[in-house]
Write a protein that binds this DNA or RNA. Structure first.
Length: 326
DNA sequence: GGGCGATGACAAG
DNA sequence: TTGTCCTCGCCCA
């Protein structure tokens, strides 16, 4: 379920608390026993995200590639970071609460789960959303559910459940995977990334609504950001890529860059940032009421009142305003 | 306590 | 286009 912003946040969690630490790897569920054995006892040397994929490096020579797919999740516990999410007037970008700080997280109506800081060792689930769980009474805690792989550092542990992909790769294999992916605003230089995206989209007969979801065209966009980006651009999702003006494609890239930055900073897919501060805060707090069109079938468009339309596109639900996006 | 949908991605036909 | 991977939270009884 996670779109690109979540994966970058998870990679940051690993960078903060697992990189440069020796890792005991295991597969409590058993399905990844062989892979876990390959990295068991090695030191994690890098953690990075490209689009929806995450790559963890061990001893500068071997990588673990993880893709969470629809329902994958990482459960962290121990010495980890819970990011504070604030929507205060001067704090839209949020801030990172390092572990162990007293963490008064922000105003009272913010998301209390995201805001709490981790004083005592706690569980933290990182998937499409982040949820702070109960304190643990011993370390490491027992795995919960079907854990494909457990990565245990001296003071922190990460359990992976339900991934689409989890495999050990050599450096050249990692390069091959990354080479096939479209640009990621947080990985690729902006000008070069924008040009790659535009060139990949501008001649295609494929509808722009499908191109934005194609990870070979641009990395990290999922069903929520797809719908919201198209609405923000007032663009008809059915428009073939070759009929979308270059400047509109450039704008889509720039807006994706912006939304991804907000998402990584706050942990929220906040796409209605041009509301007044009070409304913005309210939208952030109310998860069902924070998007322009996503998941709003039949509800009035926030701009023109026309009922939002939902249709299936390549097996996924596509939401748009038939009046504003025409 | 059962059924269903989900913020992916892929292969098969 | 459809089926499959695989898991969980939510909705409804």
């Amino acid at each position: 379920m996670p779109e690109g912003h979540s994966v970058h946040r998870i990679a940051r969690q690993f960078a903060l608390h697992f990189v440069d630490k020796p890792i005991a790897a295991s597969s409590p569920q058993g399905r990844f026993a062989a892979g876990a054995a390959e990295i068991d006892g090695l030191t994690m040397t890098d953690a990075r995200a490209v689009g929806k994929q995450m790559f963890l490096e061990f001893d500068h020579r071997i990588w673990l590639r993880v893709h969470l797919g629809m329902y994958g999740a990482w459960d962290f516990a121990g010495d980890i970071t819970a990011d504070a999410t604030t929507a205060s007037a001067n704090g839209r970008m949020g801030h990172t609460n390092q572990r162990g700080t007293t963490g008064q997280g922000g105003s009272a109506n913010d998301n209390e789960e995201s805001l709490a800081s981790i004083g005592a060792p706690r569980r933290l689930r990182m998937a499409e959303q982040e949820r702070l769980g109960e304190a643990i009474d011993s370390f490491p805690p027992e795995p919960i559910g079907a854990v494909r792989v457990r990565l245990l550092a001296p003071d922190a542990v990460a359990d992976l459940r339900g991934p689409t992909a989890c495999q050990v790769l050599h450096p050249e294999e990692v390069q091959a995977v990354i080479a096939k992916l479209g640009p990621d605003p947080l990985v690729d230089d902006t000008d070069e990334g924008r040009e790659r995206f535009v060139n990949a989209a501008i001649r295609k007969p494929t509808p722009i609504g499908l191109l934005l979801m194609d990870q070979n065209v641009v990395s990290g966009i999922g069903n929520v950001y797809r719908a919201e980006l198209l609405f923000r651009a007032r663009l008809d999702p059915h428009t073939p890529g070759k009929l979308v003006p270059r400047e509109t494609l450039e704008h889509l890239w720039d807006d994706w860059t912006y939304l991804l930055g907000v998402g990584v900073a706050t942990g929220q897919m906040m796409t209605m940032d041009d509301l007044a501060d009070d409304d913005y805060r309210n939208a952030l707090a109310n998860r069902d009421d924070r998007h322009w069109v996503y998941h709003r079938t039949g509800e009035p468009c926030r701009l023109c009142g026309t009922p939002i339309v939902m249709e299936m596109a390549a097996g996924r639900k596509l939401y748009y305003c038939p009046a504003d996006q025409s």
